[in-house]
């Protein structure tokens, strides 16, 4: 298999971005964008289409099996996980760019610490040590637990931008885990945070649901959290 990788490169946050086109060939029919980047970085003799050397491309990965969210980037314009993107499905030219809503560190690497800051701001933890244990709450908590904190949903969200009041699905999904299990005492604070950082900013277009690489049931979780946090619907078995 032969592809041309067109990579948007940048030495650091201040440097001007430029395109480097690298011909890449592999016998592995299951090769992914992640394995191509690994192979390119392992080969110091590689040249781009203009004969220039290819310095190590900065990007992040960890699990290589779409379970950690590290390798999110824009692939042919679409935010997705590099370890989940098989070259065979991507056409002859594969365009790679960093996620666009976060500050770039270098090349394909972005600083997503803002997402973690949002979770701290939302006070994302349980105050009670007797969390709800009814099957319905546990099922919601399990589903919400699958969020990879990859940030793909924020990329496609029309309403999210860094440092804004609206925190997007990358916060709303984890919050729904806490909403499912919290006691009433904590719910008062949670409701306030949920309204101002999730409910009031979300246009409910669900573009985030269609892009989520974990396939999380975002709609189901939203309906559930809205009921509990906005409409104050009584949750089963909670004081």
């Amino acid at each position: 298999m032969k592809v041309l990788l067109d990579i948007l490169r940048r030495e650091n946050a201040e440097a001007a971005p430029w395109h480097q086109c690298i011909p890449f060939e592999t016998a592995d029919t299951n090769a992914t964008v992640a394995s191509a980047l690994t192979a390119i970085n392992a080969d110091p003799s590689l040249r781009d289409t203009e004969g220039r050397p290819v310095t190590p491309i900065r990007w992040e990965c960890s699990c290589l099996q779409k379970k950690c969210g590290a390798c999110a980037m824009r692939i042919n314009g679409v935010p997705r996980l590099a370890c989940d993107a098989q070259l065979a499905d991507l056409g002859e030219t594969v365009r790679l760019a960093p996620l666009g809503k976060f500050p770039v560190v270098a090349d394909l690497m972005v600083d997503r610490s803002g997402m973690m800051q949002q979770l701290r701001d939302m006070r994302l933890w349980l105050e009670t040590d007797e969390p709800a244990a009814d099957p319905d709450a546990l099922a919601a908590s399990y589903e919400a637990s699958r969020c990879l904190q990859c940030g793909c949903c924020l990329e496609v969200c029309p309403n999210f931008y860094v440092d804004g009041d609206f925190y997007g699905m990358a916060a709303a999904v984890p919050v729904s885990r806490i909403v499912a299990e919290a006691d009433e005492a904590q719910m008062a604070d949670l409701r306030r945070a949920y309204r101002s950082h999730v409910y009031e900013g979300c246009g409910k277009s669900l573009a985030c649901r269609d892009i989520c690489p974990a396939g999380i049931d975002i709609e189901g979780l939203l309906v559930r959290s809205n009921a509990a946090a906005v409409w104050k619907r009584r949750r089963k078995g909670r004081k």
Partner: peptide, 11 residues
């Protein structure tokens, strides 16, 4: 090296 959310323990 990376946040906890990406550590091997999640696998």
């Amino acid at each position: 090296l990376q946040p906890s959310e990406r550590a091997q323990s999640v696998l």
